[in-house]
Design a protein around this nucleic acid. Structure first.
Length: 129
RNA sequence: GCAGUCCGCCAGUCUGCCGCUCGCCUCCUUCGGGAAGCGUGAGGAAAGUCCGGGCAACAAAGGGCACCAUAUUUCCUAACGGGAAGCAGGCCGCAAGGUUUGAGUAACGUAACAGAAAAGAACCGCCGGAGACGGGAACCUCCGGUAAGGGUGAAAAGGCGAGGUAAGAGCUCACCGUCCCGCUUGGCAACAAGGGGAGCCGUACGUCUUAUGGGUUGCAAGGUCAUGUAUAUCAGCGCAUGUAGGGCGACCCGUCCGAUGCUGAGGGGUAGACCGCUCGAGCUUGCCGGAGACGGUAAGACCAGAUAAAUGGCAGACACCCGGCGCCACCCGGCGCCAGGCACAGAACCCGGCUUAUCGGUGGGCUGCGUUU
């Protein structure tokens, strides 16, 4: 097998209430518009280098279809650039908990989302090194 | 052919790369899982959560009152406040057809503005009589009759014609309308048509009355397993001559109970996992019954089960729609190029409805108008 595999397993999706509470309580945040990123480096617990969640507020998109569309876009962007985040975590010697909150009130395109995700990875690298 | 109307159907398609859910199967495994292959994966409204059920937990002797909902007839259905076909009245349309209302009225209340008056109605008008003088007429005043006419209003005391009268009036008569009937015919029925009788006490809304129905909460229901931490309880050990402390007792003696520590067992239970969970008042096709909603029957297939919540992203091609330009054409229109658009909307326990949102495409029935034979 050559190159990276762009998969996204269940373990990489943050779903445990305990860790979500921990992340929102103790994590630090910055904005890579239209995303707000909340992050928290933790000791080896999850078994994967990076786990994440995406949230789109009901306030900004009333219809479930639009919320889902934004979450899918963000998820795709993360999936295709997951390696960047994994490198950061590896460099810091810890595991990363991440939350992406969508801030805009308008529907974004994939290109916008990809740009935001790359920016987020870059900023995160600066913060942790 | 154009315009309209009703009932249906569809809800972009294909290819490549990357990815997700669940199932089957093979292999690997540090038993957590991982890898390859095959299959599978949103709607007509999945929506709003407005009705009705199933299912679940809890509650519950029986009856009455109150509260809420419903209210023409027959049928359909598991059930419904839903649906089908009717009935009666109103409104819209040339028509096909659409739309809306529908238990009862004994009693009580309200009916703005306008108008004399909103229920036992005289403002104007019409008519008669009386009033000073021989009589008459007009005007005026008073008394009385009159609901035909005027005007107001959403609504004015059955309509219209004739007779009748001082003028009028169902006062009388014909027709129409209304109400009544142990009537006749048709219809399961609401009701319709006919016959006979009555000279004819309005309408809307609310209170009210009658009939029928209604226990509460919802799958975050409810159940199973249960790591870590703390802990009820029990056992053993330790601490005591059974200590500190407490009960009996006025007090002493006595007697009974008995912590705090450690180890183990262990009930409830948090995170989390699993069941509930998807085979069903189901779906597809055919046939039969029915005017229809719908019912019956035969065959076939298994058709989402996610859970910080899968069904997606990127690229390209085609189809469709709208706009612009060019060419062809008498017209309807056709072809090419360019740019843009391609709806409403995402299962969350499951069904039956209702309501609301929706770019567009398409099939059939019927109606009106036009044309041809």
């Amino acid at each position: 097998m050559t190159g990276r595999r762009y998969t996204l397993s269940k373990a990489e999706r943050l779903s445990w209430k305990r860790y979500i509470d921990l992340l929102f309580a103790e994590g630090e945040s910055f904005v890579a518009y239209p995303l707000r990123v909340i992050y928290l480096p933790v000791e080896q617990t999850m078994g994967v280098p990076v786990s994440f969640l995406i949230s789109v507020s009901k306030k900004r998109f009333k219809r479930a279809v639009k919320r889902n569309a934004m979450k899918r876009l963000a998820r795709e962007a993360f999936r295709l650039h997951k390696a960047d985040f994994q490198d950061v975590a590896h460099a810091a010697g810890k595991e990363l908990l991440l939350a992406f909150l969508y801030l805009d009130k308008e529907i974004a395109t994939y290109a916008d989302m990809e740009k935001a995700m790359l920016k987020a990875a870059r900023l995160l690298r600066e913060k942790l090194t």
